[in-house]
């Protein structure tokens, strides 16, 4: 089991945001580039600093999350950015973890589907997907959960077209998407309701 260490809040905030952030592998100065050469490095995943050990530097972030850190929520299907099953947030931006080099995430904030709800809890998006029948084999579900989370955080009242565009990079071969879209509407409705009825005009 990899060593875990909580990152203080201030440090989390510093590493946050859409900016590329600084390299955790040693800050460059005087025009000398920093290198990662060791097979052991640290990533910040779901607010926790995690040691990646015995890694090959060519491994994708997806491989590192699943095989080095035991976070198997992000799924591995196409390995070429086509299916969205490995969607994660990197510095707050949704990307395919299979197209990020693990070491390139050093110094950045990685959020996976495991980080979207407190341990043991189910996020409202996950519950809505289950209730609406948007989960059949379930393989694509974590990627959809991350993509929907990203969309509704930015655009709570996203209309049908915006939802479809936001989910266009997530493939589901079971549901035909209708029930997934229904689940998104359900989340929008219930969040708007709990906010006092404004905000999510889906």
């Amino acid at each position: 089991m990899p060593r875990e260490e909580r990152v203080p809040r201030e440090e989390r905030e510093e590493g946050a945001g859409a900016s590329p952030g600084r390299a955790g592998a040693g800050d460059a100065s005087g025009g000398v580039p920093a290198y990662v050469q060791a097979d052991t490095y640290e990533l910040t995943v779901n607010g926790t600093r995690r040691a990646v050990e015995d890694a090959w530097l060519g491994e994708s972030l997806l491989f590192v999350l699943r095989e080095r850190l035991g976070l198997s929520g992000s799924k591995n299907a196409c390995e070429q950015g086509e299916c969205g099953s490995c969607s994660v947030l990197l510095d707050g931006v949704v990307v395919c973890a299979c197209l990020v080099l693990g070491v390139d995430a050093i110094g950045s904030r990685v959020e996976t589907v495991e980080g979207l709800s407190a341990a043991g809890d189910v996020a409202d998006i996950q519950a809505a997907l289950v209730d609406a029948g948007g989960v059949q084999c379930g393989f694509c579900t974590p990627g959809f959960v991350v993509a929907v989370h990203d969309l509704l955080r930015r655009v709570p009242g996203a209309d049908e077209m915006a939802v479809r565009e936001a989910l266009s990079g997530n493939l589901c071969r079971c549901t035909g998407y209708g029930r997934i879209l229904e689940a998104v509407r359900d989340v929008q409705r219930s969040r708007a309701g709990s906010d006092g009825g404004h905000g999510a005009g889906a």
């Binding site: 290198y35 990662v36 050469q37 090959w56 530097l57």
Partner: peptide, 9 residues
């Protein structure tokens, strides 16, 4: 892929 440079400029 024995080393990965992480330049900032």
């Amino acid at each position: 892929v024995a080393r990965v440079a992480v330049p900032t400029t």
